[in-house]
Measured scan of single mutants.
Amino acid sequence: RNRTTFSTFQLEELEKVFQKTHYPDVYAREQLALRTDLTEARVQVWFQNRRAKWRK
């Protein structure tokens, strides 16, 4: 699988949710996936990576 390149819009949407919660539930991830045209799995992995970055 190739690396996912996120658009500016997608990143803004993802970051917006991350500001509210670092652990969105499955429903929130599904909604975000639909809004950003990503799969729920991509959204989940983005949050994992974003939390790792945030901890540093």
Rank of each mutant, 00 (worst) to 15 (best):
Q10P: 03
T4K: 07
V26D: 12
R35E: 08
R55V: 09
A28W: 04
V43H: 00
V43G: 01
Q48W: 05
K53H: 09
T4A: 13
K16W: 05
T21W: 05
V45K: 07
R55S: 08
V45M: 09
R50I: 00
Y23S: 05
K53V: 12
E30T: 10
L34N: 10
F18I: 00
K16S: 14
F47R: 00
L14K: 00
Y27C: 11
L14E: 03
K53W: 06
T39N: 07
W54A: 12
R51D: 05
F9G: 15
K16E: 05
T21D: 08
K16Q: 07
L11H: 03
T39P: 08
T36F: 10
W46A: 00
W46H: 00
L34K: 15
W46P: 02
T5Y: 06
V43T: 02
F18Y: 04
Q44M: 11
K20A: 10
R35P: 00
V26C: 11
P24M: 01
Y23V: 03
E30S: 10
E40Q: 10
A28Q: 10
K16M: 08
N2A: 08
R35A: 08
E12F: 02
R35I: 13
E12R: 07
A52L: 14
T8Q: 13
A52E: 15
E30W: 06
N49M: 15
A33T: 06
N49Y: 03
V26L: 09
V43N: 00
V17S: 10
Y27P: 06
K53D: 12
H22I: 06
T5P: 13
A52F: 04
N49D: 13
E40H: 07
T21L: 03
T21S: 09
F47I: 01
Q44P: 02
E30R: 09
E40F: 09
Q19R: 11
Q48G: 06
F9C: 08
E13I: 04
V43A: 00
Q44S: 13
E15T: 04
W46N: 07
Y23N: 09
Q31N: 05
T8C: 13
K16P: 00
H22K: 11
N2S: 08
T36E: 00
Q10E: 03
R3I: 15
E30M: 14
Q48F: 04
S7E: 11
R51G: 01
T36P: 00
E13F: 00
R1C: 14
F47Y: 03
K16H: 03
T8Y: 04
F9A: 12
A33E: 04
